[in-house]
């Protein structure tokens, strides 16, 4: 009896582990389009710079930094932040430029494809359809 239970258990275990292999085998686990890592890196650096500025403020308030040191260090950090901002902005615009170009090209291509397929015209109402249509999708007239 216990042997049978053991075999059933084993079977269930193996089935449990192998089951995912029979589902959608080509799917990637990184299917989400990730922001390019250099962008993430800049955003991260920016947050770190903000953190550093926060600490500068605090160290100044608690009297560890003299006014002049505080000013100089803060300026240089703010410089870092604005440089990062600039990089991020430029990267985002180039990205969206490229993306819109690609999108327009895709639309054109799709239009062309569609145009090639659209060769049937309904004799009754003049509606245009794809080659394989049996009935007019507009008026329902039977097509040849």
């Amino acid at each position: 009896m216990s042997e049978i239970t053991a075999y059933i258990m084993m079977f269930l275990l193996v089935a449990f582990i192998l089951e995912p292999l029979f589902r959608a085998p080509r799917q990637m686990y990184l299917n989400m389009p990730h922001t390019p890592s250099v962008m993430n890196e800049w955003l991260y650096q920016k947050r770190v710079a903000a953190e550093i500025i926060g600490d500068l403020d605090f160290d100044h308030q608690t009297g560890k930094l003299s006014d002049s040191d505080y000013r100089a260090l803060k300026d240089s950090q703010e410089q870092v932040v604005s440089e990062l901002d600039e990089k991020i902005r430029r990267n985002t615009t180039t990205q969206s430029d490229e993306m819109s170009k690609k999108l327009m090209a895709d639309i054109e291509k799709a239009k062309k494809q569609l145009a090639q397929q659209l060769i049937l015209v309904c004799p009754q109402c003049g509606h245009r359809m794809t080659r394989d249509a049996k009935f007019c999708s507009q008026c329902g007239a039977k097509l040849n």
């Binding site: 582990i17 089951e19 995912p20 589902r23 959608a24 080509r26 990637m28 686990y29 990184l30």
Partner: peptide, 11 residues
């Protein structure tokens, strides 16, 4: 980068 393999390994 296979989701199916990863899921099986997780299991």
């Amino acid at each position: 980068a296979s989701a199916a393999l990863l899921a099986s390994a997780h299991r």
